[in-house]
Design a protein around this nucleic acid. Structure first.
Lengths: 220, 220
DNA sequence: TTAAAATTTTAAGGTTTCTTTTAATGACTA
DNA sequence: TAGTCATTAAAAGAAACCTTAAAATTTTAA
């Protein structure tokens, strides 16, 4: 896990960073609001921890701008005990959690973990056809892994359902506009796919529609 | 609430104790480091307040010993303004907060309350996958120790379970946002990890998903 | 502070896997 | 049956990946 920590008290920041690193959490630290805003836009952080009192630009301002740009990275706000109204304001602006200073680092760790336990934004897409389960991210069908081209073709076939996918269509979409590619490429890959599907399902076959293309079908 | 207060300035200690008692906080005071250590081990205190400059044994030493013995009582360090590095060191050693001298007693009370707002749950987290046991704090898998980067990567892989972790994701979250890093870094570290895992488990392997990333798998 | 140790980065060569190409053979239909 | 279309195997080529060792850097200990 990697977090961005915007905090102007260097001592506190050092100590907290050190403890977080012990937990296997990488920390990018800055004491500057503007720098914080710039970094916050990078899509590598699992969480952003924002102190409210900062030079140049307050944590609340950063929060507001970041959220207005549609960035959904979880954000935890930090503030001194007295600034209670800031808590409300922060949550209204789209913060995910709030921690009063002083806080125990274990508490911060607990909250970081809590925020990252919730289902990841990109949910796992699994295409299904009969007894086939095709995991796009893993590039596997029922466990066996496919190469990139195999996967692209299978995706088309499953998405087409029982309809025929034309050979030219596959050629155009998998090999692209550079029409140096030949019909035979598709034929070769269909062959590979058939072999892998056979090892994984008795039911599903790729049927060829002569002169047109291919489609999936389910046999009993 | 009951606290242990280790402080060698008797006048200050008396004054602070008096004010805390007014707030219903019982104070056990000692001016002696060794005595402090002995008392600190007793599981009766809600918080321990440790001055750093002490005769015989410094507050930092007490802190270190106490934490090494697995005692989780919240600890607040006190230090003069000048002893800046001590603060960092204190937090690194497992202190929960620090307060610079001179301080207002109200401030101390606020922090005592803050630390006791929540139950102190500092559990040692051990991630597991098949027969792997990965201790995050120790940075060891089944006994063998990992470097920081190795550990971060293994943590990601275990947390992903059987899902593929993309190479770019690893790069971004381990090496950071500024993207000077190259693919080869990941490959090198995967190689190191494989070597260490092999020495520790026959079952678990890191599988590469070509063009995508890596994932753990368990072999029979 | 310096020296030693550990870790990280760099770089190069080797290996594996995937893609493309070729081509021989088999199957369909006009 | 001729001619088109489909399947398969196998090779050559390309790209991704692995490993290693040494250089550079950071950390640790004295």
């Amino acid at each position: 896990m990697r977090i961005l920590y915007v905090e102007d008290e260097k001592l506190l920041a050092d100590a907290v960073s050190h403890l977080l690193k012990k937990q296997g959490i990488s920390v990018d630290w800055t004491d500057d609001g503007e720098e914080g805003l710039r970094l916050a836009k990078k899509p590598v952080y699992d969480c952003i921890v924002l102190d409210i009192m900062l030079p140049k630009m307050s944590g609340l301002e950063i929060l507001e701008i970041v959220r207005k740009q549609g960035i959904k990275t979880p954000i935890i706000m930090l503030s001194a005990l007295s600034e209670i109204e800031d808590k409300i304001r922060g949550l209204e602006l789209g913060a995910d959690d709030y921690l009063a200073k002083p806080f125990k680092t274990t508490e911060l760790i607990a909250r970081l973990n809590a925020l990252n336990r919730r289902p990841p934004i990109r949910d796992r897409k699994i295409l299904k056809y009969a007894d086939l389960k095709f995991d796009i991210e893993d590039r596997t069908v029922n466990g066996v892994s496919l190469t990139e081209k195999e996967a692209e073709i299978l995706k088309m076939l499953i998405e087409a359902g029982d309809k025929t996918v034309q050979k030219d269509y596959i050629l155009g979409h998998v090999w692209g506009a550079e029409m140096l590619a030949e019909d035979n490429y598709v034929e070769v890959y269909i062959s590979y796919l058939r072999k892998k599907l056979a090892s994984v399902s008795k039911k599903v076959k790729i049927k060829t529609v002569r002169g047109l293309g291919y489609k999936l079908c389910e046999e009993k």
